[in-house]
């Protein structure tokens, strides 16, 4: 009981410390913090659905872009909180429609579909803007400071983390694990597979949409190629996988170091960034195929074992 209390306390402390960062860090620190929190939230939200179900989704940027674009379209006629609510609602609606239609797909078909989805939405937005509104590229002039964006993202990251924690300890979390292991078994156990998957997909999509909505004011100018940049999907995936998508802190442990690495590489090796990044990815796949956490756990066990073996010798 006290241990649970302790972890709650530590979690609250970390959030509080992070919330205090804008007061001591300069504007560059806040910029870094925004990028990092953004990817932590994206990776956590991604892992929320894709971790237990093992449905590899490349639709991250579809929802991210929907969020950004919604803010761009309505920024002049709506109050800011309402704007976020509308963005979330649109993300939810799209997720439900898409989820109903596609969560029956499995394996590589789902991957391909989600990748196509991002492109489909981008083309739809482009088509609409070209043929209906006659402008491409929208301006966002919102009085949101970088600090404001940072705190909003922190709140969102905390929410994503809590949701992930809650689901992991609930019936729906167990149901998801069963689905991930074997769908046939799951349905024989009486789990409503479609509903569980859809619910998770929707929650994950709303979180991702909100990240896009919150970050958009930083760009001032949004056009489909900027909002629907597929790199976002890939980076999220890689971060979550690096940390370990099946664990609560996995995405966090993947997103933070990778983001720092990207930043360090682009600051110090601007001309060799892509080459080094490619090598790093290859290394990750070879050395840590199941994520940092799994790697640490295994070695921890091995180390413990050898530690136990050696112990008598020391004692003697």
């Amino acid at each position: 009981m006290s241990r649970a209390l302790l972890s709650v306390f530590v979690f609250a402390l970390v959030v509080a410390v992070l919330a205090y960062v804008p007061f001591i860090a300069g504007s560059y620190g806040i910029t870094l913090g925004i990028g990092m929190l953004g990817y932590v939230t994206l990776a956590t939200a991604w892992a929320l659905f894709s971790g237990p179900t093992r449905y590899v989704s490349l639709a991250t940027v579809a929802f991210f872009g929907i969020g950004a674009y919604t803010v761009a379209v309505f920024s002049e006629n709506m109050a800011y909180p309402l704007l976020l609510a509308v963005a979330g609602a649109i993300g939810l609606a799209v997720a439900l429609v898409v989820g109903l239609a596609t969560l029956r797909l499995a394996g590589v078909y789902f991957v391909i579909f989600t990748f196509g989805l991002a492109e489909l939405i981008r083309q739809l937005v482009t088509w609409y803007e070209v043929n209906v509104t006659g402008t491409l590229g929208r301006y966002i002039f919102l009085p949101v400071t970088p600090e404001g964006i940072y705190w909003q993202l922190l709140a969102l990251a905390t929410t994503a983390f809590l949701i992930s924690w809650g689901i992991g300890r609930s019936r729906i979390g167990l149901a998801l694990k069963v689905i991930g292991d074997d769908e046939v078994v799951a349905s024989h156990c009486g789990i409503d597979i479609a509903r569980v998957k859809l619910a998770l997909f929707a929650v994950s999509a709303v979180l991702i949409t909100l990240v896009g909505a919150i970050q958009a004011p930083r760009w001032t100018y949004v056009e489909p190629t900027i909002a629907f940049n597929p790199t976002v999907s890939f980076l999220t995936l890689i971060m979550a996988l690096l940390g370990g998508a099946n664990r609560l802190t996995g995405p966090l442990l993947g997103a933070v170091p990778l983001f720092m690495l990207f930043e360090w590489l682009s600051a110090n090796f601007p001309n060799h960034y892509s080459i080094i990044l490619g090598l790093v990815f290859i290394a990750i796949v070879f050395v840590l195929p199941r994520g940092v956490l799994a790697f640490v756990e295994e070695n921890w066990r091995r180390w413990r074992k050898s530690g136990v073996k050696n112990l008598p010798a020391v004692a003697e």
């Binding site: 530590v10 970390v14 410390v17 992070l18 960062v21 001591i24 860090a25 300069g26 560059y28 620190g29 870094l32 913090g33 990092m36 966090l252 442990l253 933070v256 170091p257 720092m260």
Partner: peptide, 15 residues
């Protein structure tokens, strides 16, 4: 936690 805090510290330090 250590990772997160270290990253935060790094931010503050670098600035």
């Amino acid at each position: 936690l250590a990772g997160t805090v270290a990253a935060t510290g790094l931010l503050a330090g670098m600035t």
